[in-house]
Simulated scan of single mutants.
Amino acid sequence: MRYVKWTLILGWLLAVFAVLHYTLPQRDIVRIVNTEIRRMDFGTNSIFWAGGDTGSGEAGVNRDIRFIEAVNPDGSPQVYRNEDTGWGWPPYFKLDSSDLQAQAADLISTRDAPVWVAVTHYGWRSQLLTTFPNAVKVRQVSGPDASFVPWFNIVFLVVLALIVAILWRTWLNFRRRRIDPLVEDASETWDQVELRAADKRRIWRRWVDRWTGRDKG
């Protein structure tokens, strides 16, 4: 049971980590090289895509998706989708994908005259599942070595840790005051039942021994 318990705990922690890693904002320093619109077909990976633009009413198994193509400082490619999140999950309330596409197009640069941009995004890039992180903000920075302190993530994780600690403390107090006494009472009652059953078995054996002549006392 101990292995089952720790397996369940580890699985739960991994699931929480995956949700947070996917949902919380991340920031890349890149050089934008192209913006385009592609017609995409959706299948089992549809959960990793947002709905149509807010207010468009567009839905279905395929639709046009805005993309922002970029290059990292080391030369490796980076591709972002640019979709509204609307009022759904995750709660970025992004409604300006058209404006963001225009900003990204205005920041396109070449290798000889690079313009470095900080792209804030959430989500994962998976070639196997054909998924892309969703860009939520772009802004020009001084260079490829620009760095930022993830204040939002720090504050969010601290607040989340405090909430978890409060809930855990509340659960411990509730268990100590409500559940543990019930368990102790049930254990005492069970012990008393076993004692009574043992007494009855002894009385029964004595009665049987007396009638069968095995009781010489």
Rank of each mutant, 00 (worst) to 15 (best):
Y122C: 01
R81Q: 14
I166P: 08
V136Y: 07
F148K: 03
W168R: 06
D96Q: 08
R125W: 09
R139A: 09
S126G: 03
I68P: 15
L100P: 04
R177F: 09
V158P: 09
V115H: 03
L129N: 04
S97F: 00
E69A: 13
V138A: 04
Q103I: 12
H121I: 05
R125S: 12
R81H: 09
R177W: 13
G86T: 06
V115A: 06
L172V: 14
D84S: 02
F67G: 11
V164T: 02
F156I: 02
R177E: 12
F67R: 12
P144D: 05
S98I: 15
Q78W: 09
A135R: 08
L100H: 04
A165S: 12
V136R: 09
D112I: 10
N153L: 10
F152Y: 14
T130N: 15
S126T: 04
T85Y: 04
T85W: 02
L95Y: 14
V164N: 03
W87M: 12
L95W: 13
T131Q: 13
P91F: 01
Q78P: 08
N173I: 15
S142H: 05
T85V: 04
G86K: 05
L157V: 02
N82V: 11
T85S: 12
D96T: 10
S98E: 11
P150Q: 02
K137R: 12
W87H: 03
W116L: 02
W151Q: 10
D112G: 10
V71S: 11
V117F: 01
A146C: 04
L107K: 10
P114I: 05
I179K: 05
V159Q: 03
R177M: 11
Y122R: 02
N134F: 10
K94Y: 00
A102R: 13
A105M: 14
I154S: 08
I179V: 14
V164F: 11
R111T: 15
Q127R: 02
D74V: 06
R177H: 09
L129K: 10
L167W: 09
V136H: 01
R175P: 03
T110V: 05
I179Q: 08
G75A: 07
Q127K: 05
N153R: 14
G143I: 11
P90Y: 01
V149K: 01
E69N: 14
A135D: 06
Q140P: 07
L162K: 07
T170H: 11
G86S: 01
L162V: 15
R178S: 03
V136A: 00
L167T: 02
D145I: 10
P91M: 00
V138F: 05
P90N: 01
G123T: 00
G143Q: 07
V119F: 08
K94W: 01
V117L: 06
L129Y: 05
P144G: 06
V164C: 02
A146T: 12
P73I: 07
N173F: 15
Y92P: 00
D112V: 07
T131Y: 13
